[in-house]
Nucleic acid binder design. Structure first.
Lengths: 229, 229
DNA sequence: AAACTATTTATTGTCGACAATCAGCAATTG
DNA sequence: CAATTGCTGATTGTCGACAATAAATAGTTT
């Protein structure tokens, strides 16, 4: 009998190759800000840190370059990408289109079980809002949108979306955290959820797109107030 | 004085690293079908072919894995990806959303010069249709859509779109070339162009999305008739 | 003293070699 | 005779070493 639904830890470790492991590790380093945007990455240092040789590290960096988290200059090294406001704007343009699709598909396909999970997150976000816990809210917000795209049931859509939002995450790290308008954000989430629960695909799509647009506007506002200072 | 707009061939060769060169080379091999879908890729063979060692080849393959053109199994090698009809369907779902955005932005931003270039391609496609030259039409069609997304003026959008369509290309290689309905396809192109020339973003977006949907439908039809045989 | 040049040093790019692992075949055993 | 077990050849995974390049430093000249 074949082991059907048993994701053993052993199997995961054995299936994932070392460069792949190193890649997610470096990705974490970048996303958590330990490797700052614009910074140059030293291959030898990373290799030492992970206890490998430079080969796997180079392979991992090549993968990260393809996912646009780093850029590489010949004979000079690879650098953590920095995304400008203009680039973030471009990303948002695409994201809005994808978010609309996500809302649409969610309304068609999301199971009641999944809707419950989403509602649970929303409640947690309300609690975080009440205590003004920005960090928790930010993390929950990320998880919420990740679940949304997952539950939309289109693997390629998930891929594209994740790639895009990683770039956005890199931008947010530069300081401006969503313009601070996070109580508003959650009311928008609830409106989207209502449309999904009502199985109104068109409305859900429209609302989720508007939510992304609002988020973009908050970013602009924060960026503007920042450059003014 | 700095060389402003002179993309010397020398500079390109020197700026692009060897693994990057190898990567596009392998990509061509895959996209032109010399490396068939599902086939296993031998690192040593490729290294010999390009006159390098296995290191750069491995890095290139890691990049291609990130762009989903190959998949990698630990200790077994990397394989050219094969995309099923279901996956192609997923891709089309996303592509439709992006095409709508492309049409919208094109109507807003395309310069008269660019519109001329596009029209020129359309004429060529008409000529290819008249002579029933499927291959030429296919190539022109690819160029046309590539130019569309380029002229939309959003680098991230271009990236996402290209990534998606590469996957689709991989699927088309498996035999079914767009269901043969290519005279229809070009009339759709012309309708889109008319909307863009009229600077009607909403209509251009809607029409380009419908064009993608029609293309998807043609794929389904071809796939159905194929499995029936 | 400033500017240009030579040298040194650190880091990347590439390679060949060795170890680990897997697919296929042969031999053995019940 | 079927099935399991143990080889064998080939291929991948990883490493350390060397060459090539770029940044930093020191030295020289005007």
């Amino acid at each position: 009998m074949a082991p059907t639904a048993a994701p053993t830890k052993l199997q995961l470790v054995q299936s994932n190759s070392l460069p792949a492991l190193v890649q997610v590790e470096i990705e974490q380093l970048i996303l958590c800000g330990e490797l700052a945007a614009g910074e140059r990455i030293n291959e030898s240092d990373l290799a030492m840190r992970f206890g490998t040789s430079r080969g796997p590290v180079r392979e991992a960096l090549r993968g990260l370059e393809e996912s646009r988290l780093v850029r590489s200059e010949k004979n000079r090294g690879v650098f953590v990408r920095e995304v400008s406001v203009a680039e973030a704007d471009e990303i948002y343009d695409v994201r809005e289109a994808l978010d609309q699709l996500i809302g649409q598909r969610l309304a068609e396909r999301a199971t009641p079980q999944q809707l419950c999970e989403l509602d649970a997150i929303l409640e947690e976000m309300d609690r975080a809002t009440a205590v003004q816990d920005v960090n928790s809210y930010h993390a929950l917000n990320l998880r919420f949108h990740d679940m949304l795209v997952d539950f939309a049931g289109n693997a390629r859509l998930t891929e594209s979306y994740r790639l895009l939002t990683k770039g956005l995450l890199l931008f947010r790290l530069r300081g401006l955290q969503d313009g601070g308008g996070f109580p508003v954000s959650n009311t928008e989430h609830k409106a989207v959820m209502a449309a999904i629960a009502a199985r109104d695909g068109a409305r859900a799509g429209r609302l989720l797109r508007q939510h992304a647009a609002a988020s973009r506007a908050r970013m602009h506002k924060a960026a503007a107030s920042r450059t003014r200072k």
